[in-house]
Design a protein around this nucleic acid. Structure first.
Lengths: 197, 197
DNA sequence: TGGCAATAGATACCTAGGCATATATCTTGA
DNA sequence: TCAAGATATATGCCTAGGTATCTATTGCCA
């Protein structure tokens, strides 16, 4: 069956981007969950922001993530529910609530930054390294890579299918991966089953 | 304030794609709404699919849009609520419900396909024509174009800022725009105000 | 110093869409 | 022919995040 969203080209670029984004998020979340990181992928940027920018107010977090304040308030509530961050009153201004990592959140973040995120970054970067040309063409290729499991394999293997001949692009988290032996050998999972719900 | 999602690079590609998609959808929806197309941009692919593939079952529509069946069932319910499509029992199989355009939906679709969508497609294509290089770089540029109003201007003007020197790429809906005089001269709208709620 | 605008955040309500599962209907094999 | 599985859709409940608006607090100015 024809993919109407793809056929419509630039007209539905917004829908297309969102759809591809959901799939990519789903695949990475699936991989992280198999390594007992149960935080939904959509919450990782917030966690990372609090980690790298120190305790932040809700408003600052919204700016850092380029999301609206109400949306961030809810994301914070979810992270609080998961025990990863805590909010505390700001000494100077009683309107302000500062979001900081809990010890649990800090541990999780440390593990992610040290072990897992570099591998996710490298795997996604490796898949993206095979893309070129116009945006729509790259999205089509990326969508195919997620669909046929190339991204999942790249995550599982620590190396992408085609990285054997291509050199990896530099990403923001490449700081020398461990030698690729942390939790290998899981059963291959169908990316189709990934989800956020 | 630093854009953490952008900084994290490939790690947060999924979130990034979704965020850019939301913005692009918002900008196009804003423009369409100003031309009395009140259908949320997220529902246009479904409408177009029913229009071009004839009456479809819910399952077929889900395949065409690459979305899940429950999601499509709800989108169809919204389109029914808007009076744009109607569902009817299929003669042969009582489990199946076929989704077809209503006269209202058909009129709307005709106007969109003839007048409005080609302009949206051309405007988005024109913005995308200025992009090149790796996916993340293109996303950064696209996000900037939406943010600073370049996409909105491209939509309003019928021509993008830089299309004066660049030639337009071919899109799937370019079939000779009318000469650009349908509803010009609206007050410029801030893209920031665009939304789907 | 008191009132009022500005600001920070929370909340109500919405769309959008995922997963799990219920329901209704068909189809097939014993 | 009928019970059991397959199939089509609907529904419950969830995340994610948007707008509009409410509340609480701050800061400023007359």
């Amino acid at each position: 069956m024809e993919d109407v969203v793809a056929e419509l080209g630039h007209l539905t670029l917004g829908s297309r981007l969102r759809r591809v984004g959901e799939r990519v998020q789903g695949a990475t979340q699936e991989w992280l969950r198999a390594r007992s990181i149960d935080v939904p992928a959509a919450q990782l940027p917030a966690l990372a922001a609090v980690g790298r920018l120190g305790p932040l107010t809700v408003g600052e977090l919204a700016q850092a993530l380029r999301l609206t304040q109400p949306g961030v308030t809810r994301t914070v509530a979810r992270l609080v529910g998961a025990g990863l961050v805590a909010v505390a009153a700001d000494g100077a201004d009683a309107r302000v609530r500062r979001v900081a990592l809990t010890p649990t959140g800090s541990e999780l973040l440390t593990r992610c930054e040290a072990e897992l995120w570099p591998r996710v970054d490298a795997a996604v970067a490796a898949v993206c390294a095979g893309l070129d040309g116009p945006l729509l063409a790259q999205l089509t290729e990326l969508e195919r890579a997620v669909q046929d499991g190339a991204l999942a394999r790249s995550l599982e293997d620590g190396l992408p299918d085609r990285a054997l001949e291509d050199d990896l692009p530099d990403g923001s988290l490449e700081e020398g991966l461990p030698d690729g032996s942390l939790e290998e050998g899981l059963p291959a999972r169908a990316v189709d089953g990934a989800g956020r719900g």
